[in-house]
Amino acid sequence: MIEIKNLHAKIGDKEILKGLNLTVKAGEIHAIMGPNGAGKSTLASVLAGREDYEVTEGTVDFEGADLLDLATEERAREGLFLAFQYPIEIPGVSNINFLRTAINEIREYRKEDPISAKDFMALVREKSKLVELDAKLASRSVNEGFSGGEKKRNEIFQMAMLNPKLAILDETDSGLDIDALRVVANGVNMLKSENNATIVITHYQRLLDYIIPDFVHVLYDGKIVKTGGKELALELEEKGYDWIKAELAN
């Protein structure tokens, strides 16, 4: 699905990713954990194509395409989805309207016919139910006046609508109460298939009780320094990151 090799990226003069390697195959869920400032969100931003970051070295192969060569929207059209850590409010732009535009532009890119209004509305009903997002919220301005939990559910709703090959959830669990967390996790699990993959970036092990990862990676100082199964997350939760730092120092 995606193969990241020796990825280096900086913002301004500050190097944040320092040779990151990660391979994710279809059907897998990978969790990326790590202390603050390790580069977790930078990784998400670089993969989504945020222009503030400069990639200085390395390659990213996404389903055979050179991801770093593609514009943000082309990455999305190729099937990459980023659930934002801080979903932005866009007053005056309706959720539904922009999603229909997005879906149709993605379809055009893939040389498919536009979705009919009827099919689109059916899809909205189906997918908003999946994340228990009130249909009224779905048609309001993007995230405007949404609570924290509603914003995150809206991210998963959009993910469900766009049906990506690779979804990157950037701290989607932060700021959620346990009920919202369950709804979000449930949405992600329902969307999981053997043809798609998910990268879950998180601070807390808690989310991984609901979204069971196949692999857990520790990102520290711009690199993946340790990889394990889901039990690694529990160990991190219990012991923190200091033991990894100590391990690295030796």
Binding site: F81, I90, F98, L99
Partner: peptide, 19 residues
């Protein structure tokens, strides 16, 4: 944000201006 959902830069601008 809009481009990350697949909208072209032009469509994103258009939506924002219309709003």
């Amino acid at each position: 944000y809009l481009r990350a959902r697949g909208l072209s830069k032009r469509s994103a601008h258009q939506l924002m201006v219309s709003a």
